[in-house]
């Protein structure tokens, strides 16, 4: 399993580096993987073995046309064609880690309700870097379910300052198990 994921990550990394658009491709794949993961319908459609590969590829092409580079689209297409959609999230994580590691950095997955501007991202990178003692590269994921604030995940460390987290704590303290 890990072998497959590493293999795919390495392959994508090599191809993107050869094409000279490493950062762009890695960022795009990172975002796409989270979009697919966030949508149950999309995830189910792409991982359903009863749906022919051609149709899945059609869905992906329609989704990515004009929003991602041709190379990104082709690489995602490859993953879908080989039936590895369920691994796409892990592959993109590994890819981002490897890309960041080449520049001695670690990836911080930052989830927030709205997109952040470049200055804010830079300040986040700085403060997260100081908190973890490493050079940090922030990957922003827009996720309305955090409601407000930010939830950052660096490897296994989670620094959750989101409204969703506050609500969950509130729920827990009130003894409500299901939301």
């Amino acid at each position: 399993m890990t072998g497959h994921i590493d293999g795919y990550a390495t392959a994508v990394l090599e191809v993107a580096r050869a094409e000279g658009s490493l950062k762009e491709v890695v960022d795009e794949i990172y975002t796409i993987a989270r979009v697919i993961d966030g949508s149950a319908e999309l995830r189910n459609t792409l991982s359903d073995i009863r749906i022919p590969v051609e149709r899945k590829q059609g869905v992906v092409e329609e989704l990515l046309s004009g929003r991602a580079s041709a190379l990104t689209a082709a690489l995602v297409d490859l993953v879908v064609a080989t039936g590895r959609v369920t691994d796409l999230l892990a592959i993109s994580d590994r890819l981002a880690e490897r890309a960041a590691a080449e520049r001695n950095r670690v990836v911080a997955e930052v989830r927030c309700a709205r997109s952040l501007d470049a200055a804010t991202v830079a300040r986040l990178e700085e403060s997260l870097g100081r908190a973890t003692g490493k050079e940090v590269e922030v990957k922003t994921v827009v996720d309305p379910s955090v409601i407000g604030g930010i939830m950052a995940r660096i490897g296994d460390v989670v620094i959750d300052g989101s409204m969703r987290c506050r609500f969950e704590q509130l729920r827990e303290s009130l003894g409500i198990t299901d939301g």
Partner: peptide, 22 residues
């Protein structure tokens, strides 16, 4: 809350988060 949080409020929350992490 999700509806009430406008751009300013969101930015404020992000700022506070950065402050806390620092």
């Amino acid at each position: 809350l999700a509806e009430a949080l406008d751009e300013d409020a969101q930015r404020h929350l992000v700022e506070r988060y950065i402050q806390e992490v620092t």
